[in-house]
Write a protein that binds this DNA or RNA. Structure first.
Lengths: 215, 215
DNA sequence: ACATGTGAACTGCTTCACAGCG
DNA sequence: CGCTGTGAAGCAGTTCACATGT
């Protein structure tokens, strides 16, 4: 299919942003859009937009811009969103629970198929169609149900152990909410969502701003 | 204080990671650490670690490595974590609620001082010491209580409007959980936590992996 | 002898600028 | 003529390699 060269993570992130904006534009009745407009909303430049898209093909018409339905379809295709992905959530604490109930997953084609915890008090409780399963079942369930993506929503000290089990069971994509970096083989893709890191980034920006003003 | 040159966001992210690992190492009773060990755990190289730290000073001893308590203190200082920061959360939906109850905030020196919503059914409800306030009060409260950081946990279509209000009220740091990019003046720092984007990144990785195997 | 700190080399992402096409 | 698509140039972040200090 596509992908000849290695695509930068930053490019993929922007494709996601473009897709979101295209969907919004379509719902407002627009049918074409220029790289300039896509850039303005995505916080980048028109040249960047065109370069990002050019890795995958030529989707625009010179002098016209891009046809929104076509470009939307192409981006969904590039991002692998033509199919549904099955997601399991590890950890039924605050974050795991919020994620399990989060509508956005299903809306975007990510089906939460199971939630796991090892706390006996949580196992068996359910929201909507989902029942919290015993962490013991993890490997057997994965072998039977073949989920593609795992979300780690457990404390940092348990993250590596859980990640190891997921990898051994064949999971190739992990979304890690634990505040710890996890080690995985190169064929496993990990994305980190680290609240502490983001807050500390803001803290850094606020303090260095202040120290500049001090001068 | 510090910061002479512009520091890359990637550097700040790594400082956060180093800090987390230092704290963990301290709790295991270690007192010194080498750039090599910091790198292994942070998923980077020892040269990168040394370069990152060198922007802010010389913290190590040649032939020895870094003293963990000193380096920890320095990193906390660099990241602006010697003081507490007051955080307000906009939106008392699934994500806002989970964040408001999240222990990690306080543990790391980020005090959630208020939660806002415009839904009358949510206003007045409380968890622990926090009461959900009417979004109408936002500007008055900010003027009186001077929170430094705002977390946006509202639907994408409302994010820009809320961000505009926050900026006009003087907020300089925003953590945006909405799946939309928000536009702010250059003196306002925004960090995005975009679940859809992360999932789509995993989807992309999984599909391009598969298409490589097809060949 | 060992591990840091850092200029220099390198790699790769971003921006420029214009040729190409509708 | 307008806007895309893209080589070439520019720049920022990473890696290298070694001088330096303990």
């Amino acid at each position: 299919m596509h992908l000849v060269k290695r695509i930068a993570e930053s490019t993929v992130r922007r494709l996601s942003i473009y897709l979101r904006f295209l969907e919004e534009s379509a719902s407002r009745g627009l049918t074409t859009i220029s790289s300039e407009e896509l850039a303005r909303r995505g916080g980048t430049t028109s040249a960047q937009v065109r370069k990002d898209l050019s890795f995958f093909g030529s989707f625009g018409k010179r002098g016209m811009g891009y046809a929104i339905p076509e470009l939307t379809a192409s981006l969904r295709d590039i991002l692998g969103l033509r199919r549904e992905w099955r997601v399991i959530i590890i950890g039924a604490g605050k974050i795991g629970t919020a994620l399990a109930q989060y509508r956005g997953f299903r809306q975007r084609g990510f089906l939460v198929s199971a939630v796991y915890d090892h706390d006996a008090r949580k196992i068996g409780s359910k929201w909507e169609a989902l029942v919290v399963r015993d962490m013991e079942q993890l490997e057997k369930d994965i072998a039977r149900e073949h989920p593609e993506i795992a979300v780690l929503a457990i404390p940092g000290e348990d993250a590596q152990t859980a990640a190891d089990r997921l990898v051994r069971a064949g999971i190739k994509a992990i979304l890690n909410f634990a505040p710890t970096q996890i080690q995985t083989p190169p064929d496993v893709t990990v994305r980190n969502v680290n609240m502490a890191m983001e807050l500390e980034g803001l803290s850094f920006a606020l303090s260095s701003r202040d120290s500049k003003l001090d001068k």
